[in-house]
Amino acid sequence: MNTPFIKPHFHLLVILFITLTTVTTATFTLGELKPSNELDYFDALGEGGMTLMTLVWIGFTLLSRPTGKVTNWLFSGLLLMNISMLLDFIDEFIIYPDNSAWLTAIESLPAPVGMIIMSIALYHWHREQMTINAQLRRTERVYRDHNLTDFITGLYSAKYMKQQIKHQLLYSKKSNKPFTVMMLDIRQFDQFNRQYGHQQGDNLLREIGQVITMNIRDQDLACRYASDRFVVLFPNTTSALADAFSWHIENSLANLAFKVGSDQRANYQKITICSKEFDGNQSDYQVLELMSQQMDNTKIKNNKHQDKRVA
């Protein structure tokens, strides 16, 4: 049972207990029990069930709502309705003397007053719920947007990149205009993480993402594709033109003097870049698979060249 909201409503529970106890005590004090042959058990069952249900409504209201004006109005309206139903229920068992006949006359009065209060409360509850729903929609939209961005670099996520490549493939196929995809890989990034820690690794990724963003056009799209890999989509761009952007990115990153903490020594990162032009006759999966294969081949070639220089 959800009890956190019950404790703040303790004063309302006290009011409920005192009110129902007072009404029950007063009616049984002023009246006399009917003979058993005059009791209408069918009516008593119906009115007793209605009385019990309003008590259940009060209970669920206090269980599910925080303290406040709307809760107090809901409670007051339900309590007045419960009083009328309780009096109707007790009336099945009690005969009032002539000088207490006014009780029968007013037993239905609390119900309409309670319904008016309930209507006001429900109106304000509706407005309250509309505000909550608006906040939930904003939260969902923020979450959805964040789900399409990389938390560390601020670039778009691989999921968003795949969606945009799908759109670009359809557009390129219809317009016969090519597009180019560039993939960038940070060399020995795992070693950097082991040496300086993951927090510094995240800082490095963030700065690399900023350098990439500064060296591409507004219509181009950059994302963090994997741990140490980035992908850039160049719409309506041939590989020759994309190579020029790749050169600028590679040159800028080669001169990125990353400093770890208070250490004044600069760390210069080596990267591997490859790019490929597409005409729209592939799937998004094929595009990224071909790029990954090309990146692996490029890294193997770079390692062979490095081994030859060392030899």
Rank of each mutant, 00 (worst) to 15 (best):
S227K: 10
H198C: 03
M183R: 00
L184M: 10
E140D: 13
N193M: 05
I186W: 05
T149L: 04
I186Q: 00
E140P: 00
H146S: 09
D202E: 08
V113W: 02
L122M: 14
H198L: 12
R194T: 12
R224I: 01
D150A: 06
H167I: 11
S172C: 09
S175Q: 14
V211C: 07
H126C: 12
F230H: 03
P178E: 04
A111E: 03
R137I: 14
G209D: 03
S157L: 04
R206H: 13
L136M: 15
V181W: 00
M130N: 13
Q135L: 15
N215H: 09
R229W: 06
S175I: 10
K177Q: 13
L221M: 10
P178D: 04
I186N: 01
H124S: 07
C223M: 04
I120N: 01
T131P: 04
M161C: 07
W125V: 08
R224D: 01
C223H: 01
R137P: 01
N147A: 15
T213E: 11
T180Y: 01
I165W: 01
G154A: 08
S157P: 05
R144K: 15
D185K: 05
S175H: 14
G201A: 01
K166F: 13
Q191T: 15
F192D: 04
R187M: 07
Q135D: 13
K159W: 08
N147P: 02
L205T: 03
V113K: 02
D150K: 05
L184Q: 02
V113I: 15
T180I: 01
Y123N: 11
H198K: 11
Q219N: 14
Q135Y: 13
D202K: 03
D220R: 03
S157Q: 07
S175W: 06
Q168C: 07
R217A: 09
D220K: 02
T149P: 00
L205F: 05
F189P: 06
C223G: 02
L148I: 09
N193E: 07
Y156R: 09
L148S: 08
R217I: 05
D190W: 06
D228Q: 09
V113G: 02
K162W: 06
R229K: 15
N176P: 02
K162D: 10
D220L: 05
E207V: 10
L205P: 03
A222V: 08
I152W: 03
N133V: 14
I152H: 05
